[in-house]
Amino acid sequence: MEYNKLVAVSGLSGLFELISSKNDGAIVRSLNDKTTKFASSRIHQFSHLESIEIYTIRENVNLVDVFTVMKADTTPLPDVKDDKAVRAYFQKVYADMDFDRVYVSDMKKIVKWFDLLQKNNIEIKLTQAEEAETGEPEVAEETEAAPAKKKPAAKAKEEKETISEEEGTGKKEKAPAKKAAAKKAAKKKED
């Protein structure tokens, strides 16, 4: 099982492996009891663990960073039923966390999820980091290295839009409107 296939499903406790996605939901397998079920997108929302970020006093960090620090620390996991113990644990282990915006309920989920990942021997790392280690280019690098070519429709739209020079307002006008304004001005000069 890979970390990038794990999702949290609203309304259902625990973590799930995404088996297959469909237009109206997804088939997921629970990490708790290994049962497979269909979760409707009309009722549930799906959050990939890779996309979850945590508020800190600096910049937001990915959940993987918090899990990595938790794994490296020797402090035992707190009892999730004790709010003060959970908060004290994160103040010791990850002091940069913004405790005004990260609620105790969120911290409890992090502890539960981390425990599930440990029990299921899932390696905690992002897909992009894995690609960088293997030497394969990341998606972001590809877009920067190869400039995007203009599409004909975009080029035609650029040609149609011009900046209004008569008014000096900087508003965009369509080329036919500008031509009509120029004809009107020329007609006034003739009169």
Score class of each variant (00 low, 15 high):
V139H: 03
K119L: 07
K108G: 02
Y89L: 09
K151A: 04
T169V: 00
K22D: 06
R29A: 00
K5S: 08
E165Q: 13
A140S: 13
K37Y: 08
A132I: 09
S47E: 15
M107N: 04
K157E: 14
S10R: 11
K125T: 00
D79F: 04
A85L: 14
K189N: 09
D82S: 13
K71H: 09
T127D: 09
R29G: 02
M97Y: 04
D65G: 05
K171D: 14
K183L: 13
T68W: 04
A156V: 03
V9Y: 08
E161M: 15
F38L: 10
R42A: 14
E123Q: 09
K155D: 03
E158M: 15
V69E: 02
L63F: 04
P147G: 03
S40M: 12
Y3A: 03
G14D: 01
A146S: 06
K188E: 05
P137T: 02
K71M: 07
D98M: 08
E123P: 00
K112R: 14
S21R: 06
E59P: 02
D24H: 07
S105N: 10
K184V: 08
I122F: 07
E50K: 05
D191S: 08
E173C: 12
V86T: 08
A88V: 12
N62T: 15
K174A: 15
L18V: 02
E130Y: 03
T127Y: 10
A156F: 10
F38D: 03
E123G: 00
P78Q: 07
F90G: 06
D98F: 01
K112Q: 12
L77M: 10
P176R: 11
K151F: 00
E53C: 10
K178W: 09
T35E: 04
R29T: 01
K112A: 05
K119E: 12
K119D: 06
M70K: 05
E53M: 11
P147N: 02
V80D: 07
K119R: 13
K174G: 14
E166K: 00
R101E: 08
K155P: 01
T68L: 06
A148H: 02
E53W: 00
H48Q: 15
K151M: 06
A154Y: 01
K108A: 07
Y55V: 11
K71F: 02
D83W: 04
N60I: 06
F38G: 02
P176Y: 11
K187C: 00
F99E: 07
V102E: 12
E167M: 14
E17H: 01
R101H: 12
Q128T: 09
V86D: 03
G11W: 12
A153F: 08
S47H: 15
L116D: 10
V28G: 03
L6I: 11
S105D: 11
G170S: 14
T143E: 04
L63W: 00
K34F: 03
A8Y: 07
E53G: 08
A175L: 15
A181T: 00
S105R: 11
P76C: 00
A140L: 06
R42C: 12
L117N: 02
K155A: 10
A177W: 09
K157Y: 11
I122V: 15
T75L: 13
N121V: 06
S47A: 15
A148R: 07
K112F: 01
T127G: 07
I163P: 02
I57Y: 10
N4W: 11
V104T: 11
